[in-house]
C-alpha cells in the first residue's frame, strides 16, 4: 500500500488549501490521492486488522444476514461431495424468519431470560468488582497477595473453571453438598432445579467476571487524584459522600467502557451455560446464543436460516443497546 503514496505525494502539493466540496471527477480523484497521502500510514497500520476482520467476520456475517432472509437448511444449501456438486435450492423468504422469531413464544422466553441473566450478571459483577477494588485501593498489608489471588479466576482457562464448578456443584458427589449434608442441611440441587440452576450459572459467571471488573476499576480508582479526597475530608465530607461525589464520578470513564463490554460479553456467554447445564434442566437456563447453537448443531437437518436469524437479532439488540448507551453518555457530556 505504501507504494501508491510516493507519486501521489509528489503531485498533490499546493492543493491542500482548497478542500472543495463536490467537485468534478478530476478534483475528486486528486482528493482521493490527497487522502491517501495524508492518511496512508494510518490506513497501513489498520489494514491487517481490517482485512482479517473483513474476511473472517465480514463474510460469515454477510452470509448470515443473507441466510436469515431465506429458508436455508442443511438439506437445501450448496454442497460439494467429492466430485459431485449439489446446487442450492433454498428460496428467498424476505423477513418471514424475523416475523416467525418474534411470534415464537420460545424466542420470547429466551429473550426475557437472556436479559435477566445479563442484567443480573453485569450488575452483581460490577458491584462486587467495585467493592473489592475499593478495598484493594486502601493501604492494606498483603495487598499484592490479595490482588494476585483475586485475579486467579481470570487467569485460568474458562472451560477449566467451569469444569471445576461443575465438579463442586454436583448434587450427589460435589463438595458443596457434601459440606452441607455434613452440616445437617439438605443437599441443594445446584444444577437440577430450574430456579437454583439459574442462580448457579449466574454465580459462576459473576465469579469469572469479577477479576476483569476489579482490575479495571482499581486502575480507575488509582487515577483519581488523591488531593480531591483530602480537600473533601477537610470540608468534612463523610466517607459515603466522598464515595458518592468523588469516587463514582471519577470512575465514570472506566465504568462506562467495562459495563458496555461486560454486557456484550455476558449476553453472548456461550461456554458458561453450555458447559454447566447445556441449557438445562429442561430449558431453564437456555439463553439466545445457546438456543441458536442448538438449532445449528443439534437439529437435523441443521436449520441455518433460523439460527442465522437469531444471530442477527442478537447483533441488532446489542447494537441498539450500544447506540442508546452512547447517546445517553453523550447527553451527559461524556466523549466516547
Amino acid at each position: 500500500m505504501a507504494v501508491h503514496t510516493g507519486p501521489s505525494v509528489a503531485k498533490a502539493p499546493g492543493k491542500a488549501t482548497v478542500p472543495g466540496p463536490r467537485r468534478p471527477a478530476r478534483t475528486r480523484e486528486s482528493g482521493v490521492r490527497r487522502a491517501l497521502s495524508t492518511h496512508w500510514y494510518a490506513w497501513t497500520m489498520v489494514a491487517p486488522v481490517v482485512i482479517v476482520l473483513a474476511i473472517i467476520v465480514g463474510y460469515p456475517l454477510g452470509r448470515g444476514i443473507w441466510l436469515s432472509l431465506t429458508d436455508a437448511t442443511e438439506a437445501n444449501v450448496e454442497r460439494t461431495i467429492g466430485v459431485n456438486h449439489i446446487p442450492a435450492t433454498y428460496e428467498f423468504t424476505g423477513l418471514q424468519n424475523y416475523v416467525d422469531a418474534f411470534g415464537d413464544p420460545v424466542f420470547l422466553q429466551r429473550l426475557v431470560w437472556t436479559i435477566v441473566w445479563t442484567v443480573a450478571c453485569v450488575s452483581i459483577t460490577y458491584s462486587l468488582g467495585l467493592a473489592l477494588a475499593t478495598l484493594l485501593n486502601r493501604q492494606v498489608a498483603g495487598r499484592g497477595f490479595y490482588r494476585m489471588a483475586l485475579v486467579v479466576p481470570w487467569a485460568i482457562p474458562g472451560f477449566v473453571s467451569v469444569f471445576s464448578w461443575n465438579f463442586l456443584y454436583n448434587e450427589k458427589h460435589g463438595l458443596l453438598n457434601k459440606i452441607l449434608v455434613g452440616g445437617g442441611i439438605d443437599a441443594v440441587p445446584w444444577l437440577n432445579d430450574p430456579t437454583i440452576a439459574k442462580l448457579s450459572v449466574i454465580a459462576v459467571n459473576v465469579w469469572l467476571g469479577v477479576p476483569f471488573m476489579m482490575v479495571a476499576l482499581l486502575g480507575g480508582l488509582q487515577s483519581i487524584p488523591g488531593d480531591l479526597y483530602e480537600a473533601a475530608e477537610m470540608d468534612g465530607a463523610s466517607a459515603w459522600q466522598r464515595f458518592r461525589h468523588i469516587t463514582l464520578p471519577g470512575l465514570r470513564p472506566v465504568s462506562t467502557t467495562v459495563i458496555l463490554l461486560s454486557t456484550i460479553w455476558t449476553f453472548n456467554m456461550f461456554p458458561v451455560i453450555f458447559l454447566l447445564t447445556r441449557g438445562g434442566p429442561g430449558d431453564a437456563t437456555e439463553i439466545l446464543v445457546t438456543q441458536a447453537f442448538r438449532m445449528t448443531f443439534v437439529d437435523s437437518p441443521r436449520n441455518f436460516s433460523t439460527s442465522a436469524t437469531w444471530g442477527v437479532i442478537i447483533l441488532l439488540l446489542l447494537l441498539v443497546f450500544a447506540f442508546f448507551y452512547r447517546r445517553v453518555l453523550k447527553k451527559q457530556g461524556e466523549v466516547w
Partner: peptide, 16 residues
C-alpha cells in the same frame, strides 16, 4: 466494527 465483532455470536459463525 471492532465493537460489533464482539456482538455477533461466534457460535453461529462456526459453519460458515
Amino acid at each position: 466494527v471492532l465493537l460489533i465483532t464482539q456482538m455477533f455470536p461466534m457460535a453461529i459463525l462456526i459453519v460458515p
